[in-house]
Amino acid sequence: MSSTSSDEVRFPLDAEVFDVVRRLTFELPNGDVESLSSRGWTPEVLTSIRDYLGSAEARFRTGYDAEEISTALAALTESVTRALPATRNRLDYRSSEFVNFRHYTFDADGHHAYRWVNSKRYSLREPGSRDEILRDLIATTEYRDGYIGGGVDPDGQIHGPYQLSAISPDSYREVGRDEAEAIVRRWLATAGTVPAELLNALEPVIFEPIRAAHSIHELKRLGAAAVCSYGEIHLEFHELVLVDDTSVRMIVAADD
């Protein structure tokens, strides 16, 4: 039994319905949720089976009344919902901004140092905890970006200098607005004086969003074991995730 689309459920034949519901009623209220989910059961399918049987058919097919079956399946649906990750990502990718320092003129005491800033913006369709939002961000296609010029790779396993498998919500630490701004300004100062024109271009891309964010999360340095084969190409790699009620912005400041 499987779901043919997000809106349509394919049910087993009548004889199979009898067997499925008997097994669910007897086994699953105390069963192994992971085993259940691996066999293709989802809350949507379980609920649909319950509704498909209906009160009049329940005792005829299974020997148990509809209330008993509904109670068992409702409990199981709740367990599966808690155990399985959300199937619908809260984030919708909207746009990207890129500021290349090489496009600006530096004085003798400064240099572009092959640096750049990339900002990806997402809309947030529904609220979530810190870990839920970060987990959804990591799961987006746009997160699969090595930031070495090739752009987003939908099948890629790299994010910046790191292997994607090494990154989780625990890879981020929460920082305040002042600390987030200081991280960026320290990085900017490493190659001398920054042109006023460039600072003006960075204001709406970095500093205004930082000041407006409700929470900010910095990607930590993950260590040598997490670095991909070309990760050392970035002399510095800084990432800030800015969250408010309706949007998420991922700012990467790095060099190549």
Rank of each mutant, 00 (worst) to 15 (best):
A108E: 15
H214P: 06
I69S: 01
L84C: 08
M250V: 14
R115K: 05
G150M: 11
A56T: 15
F18W: 10
S95W: 04
S2T: 14
H103R: 10
E126I: 08
G63Y: 00
E203L: 11
S79N: 10
A212D: 08
E8C: 06
I148V: 10
R130G: 01
Y172M: 06
I251C: 05
L188N: 04
D65W: 03
F237K: 04
T141M: 15
S38M: 06
L235N: 12
N118W: 11
D7N: 12
L84V: 14
L73P: 02
T246N: 08
T42H: 04
L13R: 09
A201R: 05
R185M: 07
I138T: 07
V17P: 01
R211W: 05
R221F: 13
L46F: 05
A139G: 09
A191S: 09
H111F: 02
R185P: 00
S48Q: 11
F101I: 05
F26P: 02
E239N: 11
A226C: 01
D92G: 08
S95H: 07
V243S: 04
A58V: 06
R144A: 07
R10N: 13
R186S: 11
V152G: 08
E27D: 14
I69P: 00
W187F: 13
T190D: 09
H217I: 08
G151V: 12
T193G: 01
T47Q: 08
V17D: 07
A83V: 08
E67I: 09
D155Y: 14
E179Y: 13
A213Y: 00
F26W: 11
L199H: 03
P127I: 03
D32L: 04
A189F: 01
L202P: 00
R23Q: 13
D255G: 01
L76G: 04
F11T: 00
L73E: 01
L84K: 10
L199K: 06
R39T: 07
I167A: 00
E16F: 06
A191V: 00
R115D: 02
